[in-house]
Design a protein around this nucleic acid. Structure first.
Lengths: 341, 341
DNA sequence: GTGGGGGTGGAAAGCGCTTTCCGCCTGCGA
DNA sequence: TCGCAGGCGGAAAGCGCTTTCCACCCCCAC
């Protein structure tokens, strides 16, 4: 249809004005037909002309202009430490699902656990006038980050967090403490007394809580330190067993590190769970991919992400705290304490 | 400082006008100081007053307004089938890294392999006037999707794809065909003659290419069909071995399904690789988490994502094709063909 | 001492859309 | 027949920013 090529601006996008002109109506009428909030009626005939013109020109509204005019945007932000980490990927997927229900686009920001970047991205999300932002990574405690969060809220955006992010914002709180406790009780029930724990990045609330839950049952586990990665878990296991050969069980604070621990024990020729038991946390897909399958704590990550997003998008007052349960999943990587020592 | 509380609009965000007023300069000057493209100079003294005021008020520019005025936005889009799939998560992470270099925000759209949603998201990315969009999922062939891609490009955005997405757009092309071939040659070299292949979603270019590479060496493998998931791979393995007990090797078209195959074989009590060899594709982290570790084809996914994003953001003419190598990684899941049959 | 030019601040015109008014037209009742 | 209310289209005023253009000032050269 030659109409199309002659009407559309060569290099640029189609504007509402062009649609209105083609339809032979005013800008205002075109706007009412295409994006009208329903409050105002437009005659059938005109409306049809407008929608036809819009379709013919492949018109889509200029979202930034709409944001400006309506002073509300259609994007939400999700702040994660690393989207390639399946833990965050699962949360993000759940959140994105809900965002789609609400017809919102999702800006994902990868912070690499860098507090500076985190602040920076939050400021940029504020610049975008994102309607809401989900802080999916547990915070480092005591940052000036709180100030940036406040600025975001003050400029009209909503904030929710997974895990403890301070007061005044909606929070979905996975039962990290309870999960740590469950693993401890499970291991103790199997007769383990000498247990090593491989921790994650210092300062992460998640780490502190999981560990606290564990130590509420097992007072003084041997600690090894890693960074929540498979490779870190492997190295820490070697190191920990070097220092404490008497251990009969290892609790890695996430599944990734537990997988690494399993690899290390294979290298050392120490059978799991016959000689050493291993437990993880999160119940990521990797937990069932490894052999033996990991005993771990299930967090319903996609659901957690989804619920956090719902908190952001409903119109209830803020400051709610939604607990998310942790569930013990016993698989093959844990067994009776070996009597070899 | 009481100044802050009295100057900032109670409910809304700080505007440039407010900053200008506080600094005692005009709107134009404030704009030049804070976002000036360098072409125009502003006296030291004034500039300092402006930056001070901006900092004091925690001013960040209204991005939609800026997009409108400059008619260029600072967001790019990434279209993936499922961000929770580590394959796409890795690509997205690589792409986001590069986007950060360019100071761009990334809108991630999860399409769940639904062609309708894919089109829809692309239109919405066009609405956002995203500067560029990365099509990370290999296309379903022959969709009206192409039309939407054209509309996006026409409205001034750039488009790049991972895998074959048609002509006229930049493409990073992983050597899927070559990878399939490498696995075939490897298995044949080990003496395997009866080989099963577990394929992925029909219509996916990736699937066709990997399979084509394989069959260029092994003419007529037994085919089982699955959906690129671990569970699908498991079920398909049971089914395939039921039909063809004579198989000595199984090639799953991705690592997730290969992990499922391993699980199935464990259930069947058939040792890998002594009795059956298994190979995957992608070299995802899971490949080294399983036991035995998977022989697979390495695709440098993060790098692929990063290179695609660079294609989008440089100013070269479009239509380039960048090949990405596939590399055979031999691990423990493949061995000499068993002589039991 | 006056004219001209370079440099710098400010006014104002958009960018594409929403939304408030305003005014016209129609239809109804008196 | 006229008045008035209700319905609906259009003009226009923004939303917050960029950028062009104009005006002004100061300094220098003649």
């Amino acid at each position: 249809m030659p109409r199309t090529s002659s009407t559309r601006a060569p290099g640029g996008a189609v504007t509402l004005q062009q649609v209105a002109t083609v339809a032979g109506v005013s800008l205002a009428t075109a706007s009412r037909v295409l994006h009208g909030s329903g409050g105002r009626k437009v005659a059938e005939a005109l409306a049809e002309r407008v929608t036809a013109a819009a379709a013919e020109l492949r018109y889509v509204a200029h979202a930034p202009a709409q944001s400006l005019a309506r002073s509300r945007s259609t994007v939400v932000g999700v702040l994660v430490h690393d989207i390639a980490d399946p833990y965050f990927a699962a949360i993000a997927a759940g959140a994105m699902d809900v965002a789609r229900e609400y017809d919102l686009m999702v800006l994902v920001a990868n912070t690499f656990r860098d507090p500076g970047l985190e602040r920076d991205y939050l400021a940029r999300l504020r610049a975008q006038r994102a309607r809401a932002v989900l802080l999916a990574g547990s915070a480092f405690v005591g940052e000036p980050f709180a100030e940036e969060v406040a600025a975001f809220a003050e400029s009209g955006g909503r904030v929710a967090a997974i895990g403890a992010h301070g007061t005044g914002i909606d929070t979905v709180e996975p039962d990290q403490y309870g999960g740590g406790r469950l693993i401890a009780e499970h291991l103790v029930g199997l007769g383990h007394r000498e247990i090593g724990v491989i921790t994650g990045p210092a300062g992460l609330a998640t780490v502190a809580q999981r560990l606290a839950g564990f130590t509420s049952v097992v007072a003084a586990p041997r600690l090894g330190h890693a960074d929540f990665t498979r490779e870190g878990g492997r190295a820490a296991t070697h190191e920990l067993l070097g220092r404490h050969p008497e251990l009969t069980a290892i609790f890695a604070l996430n599944d990734l590190m537990a997988a690494g621990a399993l690899a290390a024990l294979r290298e050392l020729g120490r059978p799991v769970p016959e000689q050493l038991s291993v437990a993880g946390f999160d119940d990521l897909p990797v937990a069932t991919d490894v052999t033996p399958a990991l005993t771990t704590v299930r967090l319903q990550l996609a659901d957690i992400g989804a619920r956090a997003m719902r908190l952001l998008l409903d119109d209830e007052p803020v400051g709610r705290l939604v607990p998310a349960p942790a569930e013990l999943v016993v698989r093959d990587s844990t067994g009776q304490a070996s009597t070899l020592h």
